[in-house]
Amino acid sequence: MSFIIDIDKDIDQLRKSKAGIPLLINGTIYSARDAAHKRLKELIEKGEPLPIDLKNRILYYMGPTPAKEGNVIGSCGPTSSYRMDDFFEMTLELGIAASIGKGSRAPFVKELIKKYKSPYLITIGGAGAYLAKCVVSSRVIAFEDLGAEAITELVVKEFPVIVGIDFRGNQIFT
């Protein structure tokens, strides 16, 4: 049995959810994976403005297949989160409310999650076709030249996640 959370209205409820709890999320999330993180870091280091505001946003580590005609997106399951670990504090400083991906992360990630109260959620790797059915709309909002690695804004409905590491640092991973 999963709780439904409307993230556009109640991000605090999501922030406080405990590890192991299954949730269905409704609302807006942003996708970003390896290349987009690297690009954000380069812009920050150069002191240039960022094309998007990540404050209170949820980052989904994902790069989709192209959408076929009549569909808003292609397959869109999570990628392995640990590759974003070295960029994680940067995104927390930009204000992200949570991250979504798959798999366990480096030990220091847990401490950052506690510090910033920004839980790590997992969804189902290899269920890209199933998850595509939970996406209502999708549009590229930054770094279009990165193709599948561009940052997109996704509106999701009943998108299944499990709290992997909660705001207290408790985690489901052994």
Partner: peptide
């Protein structure tokens, strides 16, 4: 869900994995 994913994918709109 992984089994359901395989069923959806067989309709040839969405590949099994992104």
């Amino acid at each position: 869900i992984l089994l359901e994913n395989a069923d959806i994918s067989e309709k040839k709109v969405f590949p099994l994995c992104q």
